[in-house]
Amino acid sequence: MEIPYTVTARPDTGLYNAKVGIWLFLASEVMLFGGLFSAYIFLRLGATHWPHHILNVPMGLFNTMVLISSSITMVMAWSSLKMRQFSNYRKWLGITLFCGVLFLSVKSVEYKDKFHHYGIILNSGQEITGHLAMTEEEAIHSDVLKIKPDPENAGDFLFQLKSIFSKPEGEEKVLEIPKKEIRWWSNFVPKYNTYLATYFTMTGIHALHILGGLLVLGYFWGPGAALYRTNPEHLANRVEVAGLFWHFVDLVWIFLFPTLYLF
């Protein structure tokens, strides 16, 4: 039994099955991220305070560039396959994979940075952010929190750029705050505030998509590429479909980056 139109296009729609399938899947993905973005909008509208430039913008920008590049290499990989240039296909897809891995590595560094960054909300409502001048263990048990507050220009592009490569130098004052003056404190994990909750949830789901994309693309770079010998057009279709997913994930990032890093 053969299922029709797996490789060739159906004449009246002009499409092969998997292309309809992937676009339907992407339509549902639009709604999935739509649900998350609508939550972001709804919560942000209701928020009394929303942090600005709290994430490392240079790192985010770098990751944006990585994903944009991977989009181009992805389409080039498919294009090479269409023109039956197999070695080019492997090369471009290899770069795409590299970009995906690079993106995830940078992302995990960003996550780790956040886990070492702390915020304190005083009973007065004032918020102090910075790094602990004590271990986490000590902080939990002590009655006083010792914290090196972030400098005023912590949101500046250049400051953030420098902080990637070196710890901020110079003497820093350490604030000592008794816990009874504190309403709420924690490191920058999802529960710290609504902003970080949306940040971790949205980028986390996005990262899972990247991971899924990498698995699929890795398969077509490795064992899946064997199909080239028997049916190169079928492989091209599969790569196109996987590529559409990859582009979509990049597209989501194009919106995630300004919403979470810049606004």
Partner: peptide
């Protein structure tokens, strides 16, 4: 066909 599909998704996400 693809235009219709993606149009539908964008329409409903905007409605949301």
């Amino acid at each position: 066909t693809i235009h219709h599909l993606i149009g539908l998704a964008i329409l409903f996400v905007l409605a949301l």
